[in-house]
C-alpha cells in the first residue's frame, strides 16, 4: 500500500513537471501555430538565473523568484527578437527559427559562461523526505505536485475569468477574428509567451532542485518529454498537455519500477515509441479537437 502512494507521488510529480513545460509549448502553439523548440532553453535560463542569484548571496525565496522571472521574461524576449519579425511566415520557417534560436542560446551560454555544469545548491529540505503514517514522501516531489496544481488553477482562472485570458482562447481558435474585436494581437501573443515562460521557470526550479546543477544542454531531455506530453495529450486545451504529462510520468515510473536492471536503458525508447504510435494513429492527441481550426 505504501508503495502505491510513493509510486503515485513519483509519477505525479514527474508528470506534473512535464505538464508545466508542455502547457507552455501548447499555449504558444495555439496562438502562433508552431512548436517552439527553444522553449526548453527557458529551463536553462532559469537555472543560470538561480546560479547567479546564489552567487550574489540572495536568500533562496528571491533566488527562486528570480529564476522563474528570468524564464518568463526570457520567453517574452524570444518572441520579440526572433519570432515577431517573421510572424505570418510558414510554420516551417517558425519551427526552423526556433531550432536556430535554441542552438544560438546553447553556444552563447557555452562561450559566455561554461560548457560544464555549474552547481545550483537549492535548500537541502527540497531533496529530503518526510513520513506520514509510515509512508515516506519526497519533499521535492510533494512540493512539485502542489506547485503544479496551483499553477494550473491560476492559469485556468486567468483563461476563464479575464478578458485577456478569453482573448487568448479566442486567438487560438481564430486569430484574425480576434483582431477584429479590437484586441491587440501583439499583447495576446506576448502574454502567451510570458505565461509559457513562467510555467517553464516553475518547472525549471523543480527540475534543478532534483539535479542540483545547470549546464547549457540540460534542457534537451525535458524538452523532448514535454513535446511528447503535448502531442500525446493534444494541444487544443489545457487538459491535453496535463493529461499527456501525467501519462508520461506514470509510464516512466512504471518502466523504472518493472524493467529489470539491464533493460532500464530501454525506458526512453519505449516512451518514444508511444510518441511514434500517437503520431501515426492519433496525431491530434487524446483530447484532439474535432472542430476544424480556422487560422
Amino acid at each position: 500500500m505504501a508503495d502505491i502512494f510513493q509510486f503515485a507521488v513519483n509519477a505525479l510529480s514527474l508528470g506534473g513537471t512535464y505538464a508545466l513545460l508542455a502547457i507552455g509549448i501548447a499555449l504558444v502553439y495555439s496562438v502562433m501555430g508552431f512548436l517552439n523548440i527553444a522553449h526548453g532553453d527557458l529551463l536553462t535560463l532559469c537555472g543560470y538565473g538561480m546560479f547567479f542569484a546564489i552567487g550574489f548571496g540572495l536568500p533562496w525565496p528571491l533566488v527562486i523568484a528570480l529564476g522563474v522571472l528570468v524564464a518568463g521574461f526570457g520567453s517574452v524576449l524570444m518572441e520579440r527578437v526572433a519570432f515577431r519579425p517573421i510572424r505570418g511566415a510558414s510554420q516551417d520557417t517558425l519551427l526552423l527559427t526556433s531550432f536556430a534560436l535554441s542552438a544560438a542560446i546553447h553556444v552563447v551560454l557555452q562561450i559566455a559562461i561554461d560548457a560544464r555544469p555549474k552547481p545550483v545548491p537549492l535548500p537541502a529540505f527540497l531533496s529530503g523526505s518526510f513520513n506520514v503514517g509510515g509512508v515516506v514522501f519526497g519533499t521535492g516531489q510533494t512540493i512539485a505536485i502542489i506547485v503544479t496544481v496551483l499553477a494550473l488553477v491560476a492559469l485556468t482562472l486567468f483563461l476563464k475569468r479575464t478578458t485577456l485570458g478569453l482573448a487568448m482562447q479566442a486567438a487560438a481558435q481564430d486569430f484574425d477574428t480576434t483582431r477584429l474585436m479590437g484586441i491587440n494581437a501583439d499583447r495576446v501573443i506576448a502574454t502567451a509567451f510570458f505565461i509559457a515562460g513562467i510555467l517553464a521557470g516553475i518547472a525549471g526550479v523543480l527540475i534543478i532542485a532534483q539535479r542540483g546543477s545547470v549546464d547549457p544542454m540540460m534542457s534537451m531531455n525535458p524538452l523532448i518529454k514535454a513535446l511528447i506530453a503535448a502531442i500525446v495529450g493534444g494541444t487544443g486545451s489545457l487538459y491535453g498537455p496535463v493529461l499527456g504529462g501525467i501519462i508520461l510520468g506514470v509510464l516512466e515510473t512504471v518502466f523504472q519500477t518493472i524493467l529489470p536492471g539491464e533493460a532500464l536503458l530501454f525506458r526512453d525508447p519505449l516512451v518514444l515509441s508511444l510518441l511514434v504510435a500517437f503520431l501515426l494513429f492519433a496525431p491530434n492527441g487524446i483530447t484532439g479537437s474535432k472542430v476544424e481550426r480556422a487560422r
Partner: peptide
C-alpha cells in the same frame, strides 16, 4: 460568421466588447 466555436455565447459577446 466566425464566432469563436469553443467559447460560450456570453464569452463571445464579452470579447466583442473587449475594448
Amino acid at each position: 460568421r466566425h464566432v469563436f466555436p469553443e467559447l460560450s455565447v456570453r464569452d463571445n459577446l464579452i470579447l466583442g466588447a473587449a475594448t
